[in-house]
Design a protein around this nucleic acid. Sequence first.
DNA 1: TATTGACTTGGACTTGGTCCATCGTAGGAT
DNA 2: ATCCTACGATGGACCAAGTCCAAGTCAATA
Lengths: 138, 138
Amino acid sequence: MSDLLERLRGRGWRVTAQRRVVAEVLDGDHIHLTADEVLERATARLPEISRATVYNTLGELVTLGEVVEVTTDGRAKRYDPNAHRPHQHLVCSGCGIIRDVHPAGDPLADLPDAERFGFDVSAAEVTYRGLCPDCARG
Amino acid sequence: MSDLLERLRGRGWRVTAQRRVVAEVLDGDHIHLTADEVLERATARLPEISRATVYNTLGELVTLGEVVEVTTDGRAKRYDPNAHRPHQHLVCSGCGIIRDVHPAGDPLADLPDAERFGFDVSAAEVTYRGLCPDCARG
DNA sequence: TATTGACTTGGACTTGGTCCATCGTAGGAT
DNA sequence: ATCCTACGATGGACCAAGTCCAAGTCAATA
């Protein structure tokens, strides 16, 4: 995400302290924070930032394709900054930790024509579930 | 779902008018109702039924493995009575309609060991996305 | 360095869901 | 057939996640 702000500036984004902080908080690998977690970490760096701004900024990053929304549990959405390399998710059924994974082959190819109901199918999201090493031991 | 109530009675379930109505409402193919939609349809048949009871009953049916929860949009959970035949979901990005689909092969097999991070992986959920015939025309 | 339209704020509001004290009733016992 | 009682239903308060909006602020351009 390092050159993200420059990319966004080039697209006409006004760079504010709030947006910078949200982008910084999302930087890293295997990052899948909820909006509230982003707010919490952003507040540590910029105490005046508001909840609405965090939601606004996350929504904009999603619209611009810089971040993808992930829903693994029907509760809060999570925000994944690894938007430029296609991948799927592996979720621990015990503690909920999420890893980015790269399955072999194209999951789309597994859906026969007869199973497409006339849809123009364009994407496949896969969520693998299981126990992480820590939870399997417990 | 026709013999569902008998199966549940066998498991010690007390069969009430409310539970019967919820089970009836869920009967059918490609049914993926939200809790509120279940409540709405149940109310049409049994006006006194309460929201809490619908949630309780849906939760019990999920625990018993008779219904599966589906989250395709990060909003309301949906309840799928087709729990005994493994399948995946195809969701229209336009109108949100959901079809049950059966991909070829086992999606689990596509995840290489090197991508498992030591997890004991036990399941894979796939959500295919695209436009349904109606939305593609529009 | 002045201007201004885009951005931020906080609080009210909405939606989806859970909890709980109280009341009602299915189904076994008599 | 009726009685009992533990299990189930009720509705209203509560909670969590997210959206909306009117008013105030400020980044970037001139």
